[in-house]
């Protein structure tokens, strides 16, 4: 048995034991900064107002599954989705250095309908580019949850698969799919832009076949994903779901 296989086995065991213990506890123990806690304040006219800074501005509503409509219409829409992949411009790790060559003359991903969008509201693909520190994971979760469904995640580099060269780092996560659902893995350290293009082609195939429904999987297994996220993000201080 190779080292990687052992790593996987250990991870799997850990994953199981974590899941059993997690869901019940983690939801209650989330960290919120004192100034963001729910409290009562006295207004200038003397009346008492309840404020909850986190939930006053964001919705904590759980995501629901948004079923595909099916039939010819869904096939047509899937074709359009596959030919128009809008990627969120958020470089999460060292792999984001591969994005500029991807979009510029040498590899020019625009040819395949891949475009960058500056806001999560308008994007439908998220490239997790390499190692993901816990601090960045928090931002990634917030951004991912703001993207409208259907949405896809491409995990770039071996760091997202098993931690890669940072497998024993104190500040990075090892397996991305414990925290967010991944559609396509692009292995390598670092994968070159050709590999990224191949990943996009794979994603297109999945979308056209109607198999890229990970946003619904996230909604379905929401509690499990949330428990895993809260286990690793110590300074939670945000709503459970970031619309």
């Amino acid at each position: 048995m190779s080292e990687l296989d052992i790593n996987d086995k250990v991870n799997e065991m850990l994953h199981k034991s974590e899941h059993n213990a997690a869901a019940a506890e983690c939801f209650e123990k989330t960290f919120v900064r004192p100034e963001d806690e729910e409290r009562e304040v006295i207004a200038p006219d003397g009346s008492i107002i309840k404020v909850n800074p986190i939930y006053d501005y964001f919705s904590g509503k759980k995501p629901t599954e948004e079923k595909p409509c099916g039939g010819v219409v869904e096939k047509f829409l899937n074709w359009a989705r596959a030919e128009s992949i809008w990627v969120l411009g958020f470089g999460t790790g060292c792999g984001s250095i591969e994005i500029p060559p991807l979009m510029t003359p040498r590899f020019d991903a625009f040819r395949f309908g891949v475009q960058m969008r500056p806001t999560p509201r308008q994007s439908n693909a998220f490239i997790i580019s390499g190692y993901l520190s816990v601090k960045t994971l928090k931002r990634v979760i917030r951004s991912y949850e703001q993207m409208p469904s259907p949405k896809y995640i491409l995990a770039l580099g071996s760091c997202t698969i098993n931690g890669g060269m940072y497998y024993d780092s104190y500040s990075t996560i090892n397996r991305l799919d414990k925290y967010l659902p991944v559609d396509v893995y692009i292995a390598g350290c670092m994968p070159r832009p050709e590999a990224l293009l191949a990943g996009f082609m794979k994603l297109k195939e999945l979308i056209k076949a109607g198999k890229a429904e990970k946003a619904n999987e996230y909604a379905r297994n929401f509690d499990e994903y949330k428990a895993n996220q809260k286990k690793i993000i110590k300074d939670w201080n945000m709503p459970d779901y970031n619309w």
């Binding site: 047509f76 829409l77 359009a80 989705r81 030919e83 128009s84 809008w86 510029t104 003359p105 020019d108 625009f110 040819r111 309908g113 475009q115 439908n124 409208p148 469904s149 259907p150």
Partner: peptide, 19 residues
């Protein structure tokens, strides 16, 4: 660069309708 295909805006429009 080669740039987008000339029909890209129409596909983007359909995609946006399908969100």
């Amino acid at each position: 660069r080669h740039g987008i295909p000339f029909y890209q805006p129409w596909i983007d429009l359909i995609k946006n309708a399908g969100v």
